[in-house]
Amino acid sequence: MAEGTRLTTDEVRHIALLARVGMTDDEVELMRDHLSDILEQFEALSGVDTGDLEPTGHSVDLLSVMREDAARPSFAREDTLANAPNREGDLVRVKAVLE
């Protein structure tokens, strides 16, 4: 577990960057308090003896589901584009990715 349980504002800003969530300074402060309180509660788990238990990702066994590789209709182009916030003809317009 983390050294000490209170996060720093720099740590909060780093997580926000990883999550791509913009935040004001006030939001960072409030988030720091809330996250630190919650993380403190998680400390209880570090003391649980889990020995050689395997981790559970899903409660049911996940099997690969296969289907015939047959062509079938997909959504109409217009239906797919109908919710696009910024559209140019049949394209979705985005800001430049490479600067």
């Binding site: 577990m1 983390a2 997580i15 990883l18 999550a19 996250l35 993380l39 998680f42 788990l45 570090s46 649980v48 889990t50 238990l53 395997e54 981790p55 559970t56 990702g57």
Partner: peptide, 22 residues
């Protein structure tokens, strides 16, 4: 994001999944 981030994954996420098994 924090629980899955480098350095914390084993302590938080993996341990939580083990206790899930328990």
């Amino acid at each position: 994001t924090y629980a899955l981030s480098a350095g914390y994954y084993d302590a938080y996420y993996l341990q939580a999944q083990r206790v899930r098994t328990l």
